[in-house]
């Protein structure tokens, strides 16, 4: 049986693409309201791990449990569980044919079955929360990267998720826009959202993370706290990686 102290349990997770072992035997338990940041070199399997949590990738083997429920690839269950897990992508993935407001209301209406008015009202709350209510009627092409990403966060939040997944949400942004997105994420973390973030923003790790996971070659090399990561890294591989990203 599952221990429901943990909102996310990942048990011996493997995901292979042909001969590539993108995720190679990962175990993680995440408690409610914790912020876990995943770091690691490019190609180490961070995105794949995240995408296995909501089954955007079907694991080759192993189990993912969300809130005491084992995820299978069965269509109905997976749609219900995904609605509870917000995901924010590196390239925003806003729907370009819809305005910011429509981006935020669409899934509320078709997945949550909310009325037009209710969906709009909630969308407006979320757009306010990410600081761009005035952009409600603007199409994504006319928004800056930072604004697009904030709409994407609002879109995920409007579903009232229990968990938020972030896959390098700031790495496609111009430097001056990174802060506006991180501020929103920090806010969420402080309000007690359970978050799993792939990010190399060390400022964010320091101020928001409860745990840090360092991945390499599909495996967890080190699972520690921000303090443990910066002040007392155990593995040489971690030290090397840290020195590389802290250099600039």
């Amino acid at each position: 049986m599952s221990n429901s102290d943990y909102i996310i349990e990942i048990k011996d997770l493997h995901k292979y693409f042909g001969s590539i072992k993108a995720v190679d035997g990962v175990n993680i338990n995440i408690e409610r309201s914790k912020v876990v940041v995943v770091i690691g070199p490019s190609g180490s399997g961070k995105s794949t791990l995240l995408r296995c949590i909501n089954h955007l990738e079907e694991p080759t083997s192993g189990e993912v449990w969300i809130d005491g429920e084992k995820i299978t690839h069965a269509a109905k269950q997976i749609n219900e569980i995904r609605a509870e897990i917000g995901m924010v992508f590196q390239l925003f993935n806003l729907f370009p044919h819809l305005t910011a407001m429509e981006n935020v209301t669409l899934a509320q209406k078709v997945v949550r079955g909310r009325s037009k008015e209710e969906a709009k009202q909630i969308a407006m709350e979320k757009l306010q929360r990410v600081g761009i209510p005035e952009k409600a009627d603007v199409y994504p092409t006319n928004l800056s990267g930072g604004q697009q990403q904030r709409v994407a966060i609002a879109r995920a939040l409007a579903m009232d998720p229990k968990i938020m997944l972030f896959d390098e949400p700031t790495s496609a942004l111009d430097p001056e826009m990174i802060k506006e997105v991180l501020d929103v994420m920090l806010d969420l973390a402080q309000e007690g959202m359970t978050m799993v973030c792939v990010s190399h923003e060390m400022g964010f790790v320091r101020s928001a993370a409860d745990e840090v996971i360092f991945m390499d070659f599909g495996k967890i090399v080190e699972h520690t706290t921000p303090d443990g990561l910066f002040n007392n890294p155990q593995k040489d591989r971690t030290k090397l990686f840290l020195s590389q990203i802290l250099e600039h």
């Binding site: 749609n79 569980i81 995901m87 729907f95 995920a156």
Partner: peptide, 25 residues
């Protein structure tokens, strides 16, 4: 592909993602 993924990650079914996100574009 990111469009389908964004739609599916919000809990939309394959059909809903097609109808509301992919086909209009």
């Amino acid at each position: 592909k990111g469009q389908t993924e964004a739609a599916r990650s919000l809990g939309m079914s394959y059909g809903q993602a097609m109808r509301y996100v992919i086909l209009p574009q």
